[in-house]
C-alpha cells in the first residue's frame, strides 16, 4: 500500500516537473533559423560540388589537364578534355564536365589535385527540375564568373 502511494505521488510529481521544463523552454527564445528569409554561411571547409579555380591574373583555369581528379573519383563523375595548342608546350583545358548526379561529395578529387585548380563551392541551394541540370560544365561556370 505504501508503495502504491509512493508511486502515485512520485509519478504525479514527475509529471509536474515535466510540465515545468517544457514551460521553461517555451519562454526561451526560439533557436531556429527562418530559412528562406535568413540563410547560413557555410564554413570554409564545406564540401559542396567542385568548382574550377581561375588564375588570379588571367582568369583562365589553373588546371593543367593531368587527369588526377578523374582518376581519383570513385564514381567517375568527372570528365575532362584538353588539347595542346599548336606551338604551345602545356595542355589547355577544353572541357570539364562534372556529373553531379553521381558525385558523393567525398572530396578525393580536390585532395588529389596538386595545382589547387579545383575547389569546393559553398553553394548548398541546389534544386532543379531535371536531371541534366546537374551535369555541370565547370569551365563555362568559371568563364561566367570571371567574365
Amino acid at each position: 500500500m505504501s508503495g502504491y502511494f509512493k508511486e502515485l505521488f512520485g509519478g504525479t510529481k514527475s509529471l509536474f516537473v515535466g510540465l515545468g521544463i517544457t514551460f521553461k523552454y517555451m519562454i526561451k527564445p526560439v533557436v531556429t533559423v527562418q530559412y528562406p528569409h535568413e540563410t547560413l554561411v557555410m564554413p570554409p571547409r564545406f564540401r559542396g560540388h567542385i568548382e574550377l579555380v581561375g588564375d588570379e591574373e588571367t582568369g583562365a583555369p589553373k588546371c593543367v589537364v593531368c587527369g588526377m581528379c578523374q582518376k581519383a573519383c570513385p564514381t567517375n563523375c568527372i570528365t575532362l578534355t584538353g588539347e595542346k595548342p599548336e606551338g604551345g608546350k602545356k595542355k589547355v583545358l577544353t572541357g570539364y564536365i562534372l556529373n553531379f548526379t553521381t558525385c558523393s561529395l567525398c572530396g578525393l578529387c580536390v585532395e588529389s589535385c596538386k595545382f589547387d585548380a579545383i575547389t569546393f563551392s559553398r553553394d548548398y541551394n541546389l534544386a532543379g527540375p531535371r536531371k541534366d541540370a546537374y551535369i555541370f560544365d565547370l569551365k563555362k561556370r568559371l568563364e561566367e564568373k570571371s567574365g
Binding site: M42, P43, R45, F46, R47, S104, L105, C106, G107, F120
Partner: peptide, 15 residues
C-alpha cells in the same frame, strides 16, 4: 554537426 562540419566539411557523410 556544426562543429563536425567546420572540420570535415560535411554534416553526415563525413569521410
Amino acid at each position: 554537426l556544426d562543429l563536425l562540419e567546420s572540420v570535415t566539411g560535411s554534416r553526415l557523410t563525413f569521410c
